[in-house]
């Protein structure tokens, strides 16, 4: 398949996507090529159905996830995602990790989670601007590293809340 992931789902090549259209097209495509539709077919068709469905699943997974979507956009624009983080953000990271460490009740964690989620959403808005309007891919590289950190922290807070609730 020489088309890129966006083209497969007939979406414009940009960060901001119509998720409904992505879901809808994913469904329509899989319904026509999924191995379940080829139970009585020749081995050649079974193989091709498996391979193509695998590609479609992969493409869908990448576009569905905003972080992977950014990485993919950088990749198809030949931008290397390697970056040295600025000291400022490194300090912030450590502060946030320490903050998580210190929190031990659900209310605190929920508040922290909301804060991080808000922060993350702002970053996505910023990236959207940089990618789709300014086409400034290089600038996105350092933002991506920050976004990845925030997303991981977000998950850590959720995990911690969950284990607190379980006890």
């Amino acid at each position: 398949m020489t088309q890129n992931f966006f083209e497969i789902f007939q979406l414009p090549i940009q960060f901001n996507i119509n998720e409904k259209k992505l879901d809808e097209n994913y469904r329509l495509i899989l319904k026509s090529i999924h191995p379940d539709r080829f139970v009585n077919a020749t081995d050649a068709e079974k193989t091709q159905s498996l391979l193509k469905s695998t590609q479609i699943n992969d493409a869908y997974k990448v576009l569905k996830n905003p972080i992977e979507r950014i990485e993919y956009l950088l990749k198809i624009n030949n931008i290397s995602p390697n970056v040295t983080l600025d000291n400022n953000f490194l300090m912030q990271q450590m502060e946030m990790e320490e903050k998580l460490e210190g929190q031990s009740n659900i209310e605190q964690l929920t508040k922290f989670l909301n804060e991080i989620t808000k922060n993350l959403n702002e970053k996505f808005q910023q990236v959207k601007q940089q990618l789709d309007e300014e086409r400034n891919y290089a600038a996105v590289v350092s933002e991506l590293a920050k976004i990845k950190f925030l997303a991981k922290l977000n998950q850590k807070i959720k995990d911690k809340s969950f284990s607190l609730m379980e006890d």
Partner: peptide
């Protein structure tokens, strides 16, 4: 194999 692959691609196109 190749024929099957083309048919698969066309199914995708037709579906959309």
């Amino acid at each position: 194999q190749y024929f099957a692959q083309l048919r698969m691609d066309r199914s995708i196109k037709n579906a959309l």
